[in-house]
Write a protein that binds this DNA or RNA. Structure first.
Length: 202
DNA sequence: TACCGG
DNA sequence: GCCGGT
C-alpha cells in the first residue's frame, strides 16, 4: 500500500476512535511507523490531512450509495439501506469528532455539507422520481422538497444539539423518522410492498 | 531527533 | 505546557 494511503487509513481509524485534536501528528507518525517528515511530504498540514480523511470517508459512502441504485426495482430498499448506512457511519465515529471538525476544521466540514446537498439530495430526488414512476410513491409529492426534508432528517444525527443530550436513542429515532417519512409518500402499492418485504430488508 | 513559536 | 510545523 502507498504511504499516502496508509497514512489516510491509520488517521481515519485513530481520528474516529480518539478524536482529531487528541491524536498528535507525532503519535500518528508512530502508529503508521514513519516519521513526521514523511507525513508532511504528503500533506500540507493537519487541516489538509483532516480534509483528505473526511473526503475518503465520504468517497466510501458515495461508492456504496451508487451500488445501491443498481437494481431496477430497488426504490424502497435504497431508502432503507441508505438510512442504515448513515446510522452505521455515525456509530463508527466518536461524536467528539463531529464537534471538533465543525469547530476547528471548517474546510473538512464544508466537504460534508457539499456531499449532503450535491450527492445525497440529488440521489434521493432520482429515487423518489423512480418510485413515482413505478407507482410506489404518490405522484403528487414534490421530489425535490421531500429529498431535502429527508436529507435533513438523516443528517440531524450529525447535529451536536441532537446528540449531546439525546432524549431518545438515535438509532430508534432514525427508524421512527424513516418509517414516518415512507408512510407519508407511499401509495397503497408502496405500502403493501414495504410491509411484505420489510422483515427482509430492515 | 531537536527545536521554535503559537 | 503542549503540539504543529521545520
Amino acid at each position: 500500500m502507498e504511504t499516502r494511503e496508509k497514512i489516510l487509513e491509520v488517521a481515519k481509524d485513530q481520528f474516529s476512535r480518539f478524536g482529531v485534536r487528541s491524536v498528535t501528528m507525532e503519535e500518528l507518525a508512530r502508529a503508521v511507523g514513519i516519521s513526521k517528515k514523511t507525513i508532511y511530504q504528503e500533506f500540507e498540514d493537519k487541516k489538509d490531512l483532516v480534509k483528505e480523511v473526511f473526503s475518503k470517508i465520504l468517497d466510501e459512502d458515495r461508492q456504496k450509495m451508487v451500488a445501491l441504485l443498481e437494481g431496477e426495482d430497488m426504490v424502497i430498499e435504497h431508502l432503507v439501506k441508505m438510512s442504515q448506512m448513515m446510522r452505521e457511519r455515525l456509530s463508527s465515529i466518536n461524536p467528539m469528532v463531529i464537534v471538533e471538525v465543525q469547530k476547528y476544521f471548517p474546510e473538512a466540514w464544508r466537504i460534508f455539507e457539499e456531499f449532503k446537498t450535491n450527492f445525497i439530495q440529488e440521489d434521493l430526488i432520482r429515487v423518489l422520481d423512480r418510485g413515482k414512476e413505478l407507482g410506489y410513491f404518490r405522484s403528487e409529492i414534490d421530489s425535490r422538497i421531500m429529498a431535502k426534508v429527508r436529507v435533513n432528517q438523516i443528517t440531524s444525527m450529525f447535529d451536536p444539539s441532537n446528540f449531546i443530550n439525546p432524549e431518545f436513542n438515535f438509532v430508534e429515532e432514525q427508524m421512527v423518522l424513516m418509517d414516518h417519512f415512507l408512510h407519508g409518500i407511499f401509495t397503497e402499492k408502496g405500502r403493501e410492498s414495504f410491509n411484505s418485504k420489510k422483515a427482509s430488508i430492515i
